[in-house]
Design a protein around this nucleic acid. Structure first.
Lengths: 207, 207
DNA sequence: GAAAATACTGTCACAGACTGACAGATTTTT
DNA sequence: AAAAATCTGTCAGTCTGTGACAGTATTTTC
């Protein structure tokens, strides 16, 4: 038997990752056809070839098994440099940039269309996303407050605006996609940022 | 027996309203001491003097029995005049005005402090609020799109920004309140709107 | 004022979500 | 190969939430 100790992933991790994918797959399959309400965890577990108990060792609900995590987005946001010398507007622009790149990237992922279609018609899944966003806003808010030395209110607003822009861009893109039209993600995101400025700052765009 | 038919509320409505209050009260009492997790619907029902089954005829979960509805805010927003001639910024200002007044009003309500303290330390209750906000955003977004003739993206952004400002102002106020300090609600809300503009419109504040 | 229609509540029964405990199997480490 | 750590399934149990039915109170109708 060849030595593969250089490889950090062993059989255990492989199997875990595979199980995760199977659960995701099974969940999407069933939610797509029967809807969130009518789908039971038992049926998901059966389709994924595991016990019901094991399902809950991977995900804490069928909703969270369906929606993708926001870990990458969070990482992208936290990896940006935020100096105390920057103005709130500059910080927002910096983070929005990270968001735009990540957005364009995630749209390319396999299964994006599938999940977005599901999200548009299943409020309970949107709820699950909202829970993740709550965590993201808190984390980003804390980071901004500490690293950029903004007031609590400013930091929170920056974080909320980031999440808000992301949400709107995402939803607009998904709607376009569902309608058969195709659009440029980065451009769409930038358009959201642009509209945001126009809406909230009356003086800057006076007639 | 005196004729009271002029009074639109009969014994039935009275009793219903009283039961609602009892449930709210019992829920807050128990959540306050034991937390959301540890409190069962059965215990709430017992304290409110009703059966468990009846509890679910009034509220669909213990979370929603604890948080106040957003019906008044929604009414206030929808009662504002939105003409197609208005710019997105003007629409936002108009709605923000309604929000500010409602905010100052709600802060005065009895039980506000109690609920806000609870919300600050119970994520599950925040989740329940978030569900209501989702509905509010959708409703406002639709109204804005139809009555002010904005693009879907603009309408959605306006609605999200309203909700966002409300949330931040609310949270800041609650935090101040919890810390023993007292602040002016209308002023605080206006400050949030101000900061919002400063954050999202770089060109307007570039010194 | 009685009778009929309507609304509210409690009891019962049940499905589904989720968790703790334990035992057996598998992988990893020594 | 033995020991330790990890993963999984089974079992039993609590809690949430809902449909069905019957009994009671209220309102409406005559």
């Amino acid at each position: 038997m060849p030595d593969e100790s250089w490889n950090t992933v062993g059989k255990r991790d492989d199997h875990k990752a595979a199980t995760r994918r199977q659960i995701q797959q099974a969940t999407l399959d069933l939610l797509e056809t029967a809807g969130v309400e009518a789908t039971t965890v038992a049926s998901i577990a059966e389709r994924a070839g595991i016990s019901e108990r094991t399902f809950f060792r991977y995900y804490d609900s069928k909703e969270s098994a369906a929606v993708p995590g926001q870990g990458e987005l969070l990482d992208a946001l936290l990896s940006r440099e935020l100096a105390p010398s920057m103005s709130p507007a500059e910080i927002f622009q910096e983070l929005a940039g990270a968001c735009r790149e990540q957005f364009a990237h995630e749209v390319e992922q396999v299964g994006f269309g599938r999940i977005s279609r599901l999200l548009l018609r299943e409020p309970r899944l949107l709820q699950a996303v909202s829970r993740q966003e709550m965590h993201l806003v808190n984390t980003v808010s804390d980071a901004v407050e500490e690293r950029a030395r903004l007031s609590r209110m400013q930091a929170q607003l920056v974080a909320e605006l980031i999440a808000c822009t992301w949400r709107v861009a995402w939803q607009c893109f998904a709607r376009e996609e569902s309608a058969g039209r195709t659009s440029n993600p980065a451009e769409l995101f930038e358009q959201a940022v642009q509209n945001l400025a126009e809406i909230s700052a009356p003086a800057a765009f006076g007639r």
